[in-house]
């Protein structure tokens, strides 16, 4: 089963809803549940866009909470997903079969780390297997402090949440799967028009127009789908 979580903020609410809607549609029957935290209030004032050690620890806390609260089994997966991801087929979930501890779209220029050359998974979507997630959840504050110093500061690694989650998973023994290009690396508009959608898209762009309509920013994309009665 997949236990998904996402951190978002109010301007992305429509995107986040679209992500949840499409995740629910295409991940059933693998989905156990989704938890979405809408930041921007008084508790997560420093989350912002997830950059930095603090926000990374917020995500780790969420992962830990899920491990503790939902009886996550060793072969289950926790999915950290961005609110600006949309799913368009169930194909990606065929890869989440228990073989790999860390699954995602891997950074293509590996860098030197204490664990050797490593490329992190894009924060758009990171699957972490249950056994690895439990090990990550059990890291103490002292251990995390040492990891930060000896692995991140010493090797000058950026402390963004995608890198921290990926790296901690690797440190906890995960073997990685870089998802095949054909699952995601398309152009949504072109793929949509040619009716050749891939499995998921990261809407990390701000198109001037989208499907022939004025768009300007990605937050307007869900409204354009809606106005055209398009069900993803």
């Amino acid at each position: 089963m997949i236990f998904a979580f996402s951190f978002t903020y109010p301007p992305d609410e429509a995107l986040s809803n679209l992500m949840c809607k499409t995740l629910i549609k295409y991940s059933v029957p693998h989905l156990a549940n989704i938890r979405v935290v809408q930041t921007g209030g008084r508790q997560y004032t420093s989350y912002l866009n997830g950059a930095g050690w603090g926000p990374s620890m917020m995500k780790l806390n969420e992962l830990s909470y899920i491990c503790e609260s939902f009886n996550v089994r060793a072969d289950d997966y926790i999915l950290s997903v961005d609110s600006d991801v949309i799913f368009t087929s169930s194909q990606v979930f065929n890869y989440v079969d228990g073989t790999y501890g860390l699954i995602g779209v891997q950074h293509q220029q590996p860098y030197n780390t204490a664990l050797g050359m490593f490329g992190h998974m894009s924060g758009a979507l990171i699957f972490i297997r249950g056994d690895i997630a439990h090990k990550m959840a059990n890291l103490t504050d002292d251990e995390l402090g040492k990891i930060r110093q000896e692995h991140f500061v010493r090797f000058n690694l950026t402390e963004n949440e995608d890198i921290v989650l990926s790296y901690l998973a690797k440190l906890c023994g995960a073997n990685e799967l870089n998802l095949p290009n054909e699952l995601t690396s398309g152009n949504l508009q072109e793929d949509f028009n040619s009716n050749q959608l891939r499995s998921f898209y990261h809407l990390n762009f701000n198109p001037e127009t989208f499907l022939g309509e004025p768009c300007v920013k990605k937050q307007n994309i869900p409204g354009i789908f809606e106005s055209k009665w398009i069900e993803l």
Partner: peptide
């Protein structure tokens, strides 16, 4: 309400 975080829980629908 923008003073408090909102947490959405989904189990999915059939």
């Amino acid at each position: 309400e923008n003073r408090f975080e909102k947490r959405f829980y989904y189990n999915g629908k059939r």
